[in-house]
Write a protein that binds this DNA or RNA. Structure first.
Lengths: 303, 303
DNA sequence: GACATTCATAGGCAAAGCTCATGAATTGAT
DNA sequence: ATCAATTCATGAGCTTTGCCTATGAATGTC
């Protein structure tokens, strides 16, 4: 057998109280049990720890030395338990995850704010990554999950759609525009538009879908950042071609989104996880928050 | 139940090897036992530590966090055991003890040298103290024992005579002096003598014993330090009146001791310990050395 | 000297801990 | 595709540990 924490607890108790009986009471065991624990520990370590008579329990020099290590171990043990418990209850800990640049800027701030309100002590480590890299990065880093728009299937990954946004025309709330329920891609051709550059995932999806129907998008402006597109739209430079989910209503209160049809395209916002990896409690809490918040926005944004 | 070091050992093993089977082998237990230990720990902490399938055992983030505390505790435990073992084997530690000034200078250097040779890593804290204070200091300080000449009995103290020296005349190895087997106190009166001052313990013992027989000592010189007496003797200034044990043969090779008789007086060198206090292993080792070394000198010194 | 307190020890019982045997899942080879 | 091999989980059964109750021994108190 080996030294046990039980023995150490008895030891520090006796050391502090100078009494086996009192220490036993504190530990909720009988005096005889405590007495045995001390004897075991002494045998274990090969040192006498207390000079005891029926009338006094005097720590030896060895005990004086040992007590520090013992106390440290016990405090470590206690800290470990508490820390794990906190982790389990997602009261502390860390969430590390990946987000594609688009979701990170448009969708997640809301989730982050909500989550932070509920779990103020959890450290959040969000890394925005090019959408293409989501999967490979998720396998390689310590990020627990990824949020972004991905299509297809991947080995060892589970994909869950959190919300999906219809590709929409986003413009200022003019009487004319607000009156529309939707726009066709053809109608769009007549209007000044702002779209993402061809290299971006969103744009690639659009181009692919339209070309399948013999159509094509000829935007007036092409930008890299979603925010730029929205800011330009707010200035009245044109309609932004984006998933409705990408419009943060609070940031751009003057803008509204109207779905594009013929074809109607949707762009999912998905949650990626490595298969067979349970999420940390903190991450689980975050995912739950994300689901809730994003589900609330699932309906295509309208006026 | 509470977290046990056993569980932590299993945990760190599995964490490191990424396999329950391998960890079990290392620990010398069966795979099933290791599997149970992990399950227990998980239940204990309320956290999943590994994502396990039959084919892989992946640590969770909680495990990543826990492993540090676990390893620290185990290393502490190991360190504690080792340190205690060293202490027990007197390979480390400290000896604090008291010595009366006389013994400290004349008798103990030999013991110290011998002890140090055998236990180079043990710290020695020898405090020389007036003989009168030995007992009171021993009760009050953290010194574990005392060595000196004390008479009588004391409460809570055990006294053991390590060696005893006959009170002797110490002089240069002249043909005349070396020829003597002993001297009487009366004969001494005719010769130049060097004795300790009246305030010293040795002198008080002499004066008391002689006056009981109606005799008295009238030394030519009176000194405070034993070494001074011996140095003067070596210079031929007279015979030193001292216990034979107080003559370090190696320091004063020219001097020899001849016992004084009528009356023959002996002066014990005793070991004092507090009753019911076990000595630290280091102290025990020291005492053993002292007993051996001093026993070797027990025979009254002669040419 | 009787009493109270405290530590140690013995006997007995419940629980923990381990091993052995077996089952289920997965991988790699034939 | 089937078979063998590997690995983790689970259940039965046995051994050991651990605790409690009861009692004894020592020591200090009134």
């Amino acid at each position: 057998m080996n030294v046990t924490l039980r023995q150490l607890r008895a030891f520090t108790g006796v050391y502090r109280t100078r009494s086996i009986t009192r220490a036993a009471r504190e530990l909720g065991i009988t005096q005889s049990a405590a007495s045995l624990l001390i004897q075991q520990l002494e045998a274990q370590l090969g040192v006498k720890l207390f000079d005891r008579s029926t009338r006094s329990v005097q720590p030896t020099l060895a005990a004086d030395e040992a007590v520090h290590a013992a106390e440290r171990m016990l405090s470590d043990a206690h800290g470990l338990s508490r820390r794990m418990r906190d982790l389990a209850q997602a009261r502390a800990g860390r969430v590390a995850f990946l987000a594609s640049a688009g979701t990170a800027s448009a969708l997640l701030p809301l989730v982050l704010a909500r989550f932070r309100a509920g779990h103020p002590d959890i450290e959040i480590d969000m890394r925005d990554v090019a959408a293409d890299d989501l999967v490979s990065r998720l396998s390689a880093t310590d990020a627990e999950f990824a949020i972004g728009s991905v299509e297809g299937e991947f080995a060892d990954m589970t994909i869950e759609t959190l919300t999906s946004g219809r590709l929409s025309a986003i413009g200022r709330r003019t009487a004319d525009f607000a009156a529309r329920r939707s726009l066709t891609w053809d109608e769009l051709a007549q209007l000044p538009t702002i779209a993402m550059r061809r290299e971006t995932r969103i744009r690639m999806q659009i181009d692919q879908a339209l070309s399948a129907q013999g159509k094509r998008l000829d935007p007036t402006y092409e930008v890299t950042l979603i925010n730029t597109a929205l800011a330009m739209t707010a200035q009245g430079l044109g309609l932004a071609i984006l998933p409705a989910t990408m419009l943060p209503a609070d940031q751009f209160p003057t803008l509204i989104a109207r779905p594009l049809v013929r074809p109607a395209l949707t762009r999912p916002v998905s949650l990626l996880q490595r298969q067979g990896r349970t999420l940390s409690p903190a991450a689980q809490a975050f995912v739950t928050t994300a689901r809730t918040v994003l589900a609330g926005r699932a309906a295509p944004a309208s006026g």
